[in-house]
Design a protein around this nucleic acid. Sequence first.
RNA 1: GCCGAUGUAGCUCAGUGGUAGAGCACUUCCUUGGUAAGGAAGGGGUCACGAGUUCGACUCUCGUCAUUGGCUCCA
Length: 645
Amino acid sequence: MIHITLPDNSIKEYPTGSTALDIARSISEGLARNVLAAKVNNEVWDATRPIDSDVRLRLLTWDDAEGKSTMWHSSAHLMAEAIELLYPGVKFGIGPNIENGFYYDMDFGDRTITPEDLVKIEQKMLELAREKQGFIREEISKAEALKHFKQKNDEYKLELINDLQDGSITLYHTGKFTDLCRGPHLPDSGFIKAIKLLSIAGAYWRGDEKRKQLTRIYGITFPKAKDLTEYLVLLEEAKKRDHRKLGKELELFTFSPKVGMGLPLWLPKGAMLRERLETFLKNLQRKAGYLPVITPHIGNVELYKTSGHFQKYGKDSFQPITTPVEGEQFMLKPMNCPHHCEIYSYKPRSYKDLPVRLAEFGTVYRYEQSGELHGLTRVRGFTQDDAHIFCRPDQLKEEFIAVIDIVLHIFKTLDFKDYTAQVSLRDPNDHEKYIGSDENWEKAESAIIEAAAERGLATTVEIGEAAFYGPKLDFMVKDALGRKWQLGTIQVDYNLPERFELEYTGSDNQKHRPVMIHRAPFGSMERFVAVLIEHTAGKFPLWLTPDQAIVLPISEKYVEYAKNVLHLLQNSEIRALVDERNEKAGRKIRDAEMMKIPYMLVVGEKEEETGTVSVRRQGEGDLGTFSIEAFVNLINEEIKRLTGQ
RNA sequence: GCCGAUGUAGCUCAGUGGUAGAGCACUUCCUUGGUAAGGAAGGGGUCACGAGUUCGACUCUCGUCAUUGGCUCCA
């Protein structure tokens, strides 16, 4: 007999070799019907795998993250099975579950898979799912595994097996399909009730762009048809928040092929929104002791040779401009740090002067690969809310923490709650990718980790994600469709000060080297605005929104009064406009609602007589009648509450 | 850059190897209205661009450009 400890800490006795499914059945048939997998001690197992020792057991259903991932992993197998049946000879790469669904990378040879194929595959999958095929686990030796896939002539699986340890290799059989797989899997394919194959993509084998590109099919499955419908509705809703769509609708920005791909054109409303964000940060920075600087959009190639950027990114940049007479070479500024280093060193610095915090909204140009461009989130010309802090080593942690506080303040003000803080460290085995001594790297990395800990940030650590000159703390957020973007970034750098031979005179009258912090709390204005659009679905906070109020005269008779109201509002620094069109009030309200203007001021006979406005809040409805003064107060109070300024 | 998809009016999108369509927006007129679409008339497109096939191409083929889903990259 074995002893099973359940999540409520009760211990039950079962015959040796009982499965999680057996145990579920002993509790209730209904539970057993919903068990997708089981957590055995700390490992997720097939619910059908015999247990032969005392363990702690948790049954996993669709409500558990591990339940979902098991479902999706099994769905990848089911898709592979369907594809093998429909297109014999396809070679399989890897097919994991992902955050929302699964994919499988496959080599279809010369065949191109079309969206119509996806429908066929879906149908085949449903057919196979209805057969309630088991996922049969088999432990196998490395030699046997190699033999099996050699027979199938599947070079991708053979490569994977070659990297595996003998004795730890398992296969899973579903119907006639066999896959190399660690598992775990569903008890049978009948749990998969609703299937949607979402997209076809190319993906390099093992993520290496020098290797063959396989065909990747993404999909998602659910235990109920209703869940799939809901998911698809959710996707549609998310698409409505896409900043590219809203940016067009709200007239914030545009692109022109004539200007060039990835070079955003800010329209008046977008430009004014961005300016307000910049002013907001400038105010914060002034209080935090930053000094403004302005530097040119180009710099001599020598500058970037000194910084190391030329060696590292020169080939992949917009190529240098050569002057017609002297033949000197200038690069479009891909980052601001080298310019700021030169500002630091234009005069001798004393330890008493530090920290020096140089801030600039600096526009930079990077030759991003054409396929990588994406709305405002990935562009070739963008403006960083950049600053470089030059400080003494003993000031580093304090300065770093002060920057974290700025980032957190911005996120709080804009109600960004769903972000992750990522510590990006170098890969200590990769000496090609990074410059500087191990000692400097270690100092920089521990400074970041300590500072983040001091502010109680829950961080994830990514090895090999550091910049070439130093480690970073990045603030990541997701867009409407779940894609992750880096916003704020804070980087510690011991290397550029060395390359630029930056110095200060210490209290000991000796020369010392300052430490540098690169930081951009928004990241870039373009990306931040993009994320802000998606976060707010275009309903910007009152202090940022292009038009705060619109005056809606009931008929043309009251246009004159509406204009008077407008002037009074404008005198109080409120951004407003009048809808003078010859339309009914209902129509004007509808259009203002669609334009997401926060306040609608309806004026007619009643208001004109009393010198008031009838206030309607976007998305909420009628708030009643206000004097102009009371309305101005309402707006100002709301802005004060939102910004704390 | 790579693998796929897409490109028709300002916007969202139908459409066919034989003279180019809708809704919204726009213009004019009627209507002068009270909290999410009042009515009528009208203007507007080299069907992304360039070649080819064809009696004839918006439609079929190839190329270019741009957009887009991913991959790779991201100072």
